[in-house]
Design a protein around this nucleic acid. Sequence first.
DNA 1: ATCAATATTTTTAATTATTAAATTATTTAT
DNA 2: ATAAATAATTTAATAATTAAAAATATTGAT
Lengths: 143, 143
Amino acid sequence: MDFQQQLKSLGMSVTPVRLAVLEALNENPHSEASRIFQAVQDKLHTASIQAVYKNLNAFVEHGLIKEFRPKGMSAIYETRVGDNHHHLVCRSCGLIEDTDCIDTAPCLTSTDPKDFKIDEAEIIFWGICPTCQNKHHSEIGET
Amino acid sequence: MDFQQQLKSLGMSVTPVRLAVLEALNENPHSEASRIFQAVQDKLHTASIQAVYKNLNAFVEHGLIKEFRPKGMSAIYETRVGDNHHHLVCRSCGLIEDTDCIDTAPCLTSTDPKDFKIDEAEIIFWGICPTCQNKHHSEIGET
DNA sequence: ATCAATATTTTTAATTATTAAATTATTTAT
DNA sequence: ATAAATAATTTAATAATTAAAAATATTGAT
C-alpha cells in the first residue's frame, strides 16, 4: 500500500507536503525534523518546517510513524511501525540502527511492573558502532 | 558517602549550588532541570538555572547522576546510578517509576547487535499507572 | 590565615527545537 | 464547479538548553 492509500484509509487528506514528508522519511530512516524538512524542500522546492512538524505529529497520532528521543538528540522519526523492534545508537557518531526484538510479541515483561498496565517496551542499546570502533579509541566521547 | 565526599573523590570542587542540586535531585527523583532549579532556589534563595544545567551536565559526565529523555518530556535526571534499572512511564500523567532489570548484570543482549559494542540497555516501559487506570478511561490520551 | 591559581556562578544573551495563531490555499465531498 | 473542511504558509511566540564575559568563590600552597 502506497502512502496515498495509507493516508486515505486513515481519513487524512492527501497533500504534496504530506507525501513528501513520508517519502523523505522512508528514504532517510531515523531522521529528525530538520533533516526531513531539507529532504522535503529538495522535492517540492518550497515547504515550511512548521508543516513538517505538524504532519509528523499528526502521523504519530495516527500511528503511521513512530517517534523516539535518544538523549542528546532531537526527536527521531521512523516509518517502521507495527512490529516490535528496538534501536542501537552509537555514542560516538550518533548512528541509529534498528535491531529486532527477541520475540515477535512485544517484550513487555518487567520484573517489577508496579501495577502499570504496560503496552510498549522501548529499548535503546547504547554502544559504539563498527565504524567508530575502527577509529581512534581516544576520540570516543560521550554526548 | 555523602555528596561532599562524592564530589571530592571525583576531583570536583564543592559548592553550595552543587550540594543543593544533588540534594534536590535526591529528594525529587526523576526531575527535570526546571524542577531541580525550583528546589535549589528553595534551599539557597538564589541560584541560576544556568548553573543548574551546567552542574547536571557535569554530574552526568562524571557518572554521578543519569539522564534520560522520554518522548514528550524534557531531560529527566536521577541519582540512582551504578545498577541496571529501567523506567515505567505513565502515558496519561507522566509519572515515572523505577523498575528493576531481570538480571543483576545489564541486559545487553540484542538478538541482532549489528556489530555494535553495546555497553548499556535503556528501557522505557510505556503504559498507564495504577492511579490513572482508576480514572475515566475516556480521559486517557497520549502525548 | 593569606595569596595566587583555578574553577564556578552570575548576568546577559543567543541558539535550537517546537508550537501557536491568523490568513491564504488546497483538498474533498457534492 | 462549488462549498465546506482541512492543510499550508507566514509571522510570531515559547520552551529548553547552551554560550560568553565579568564577578565571585574555592582550592591548594605558603
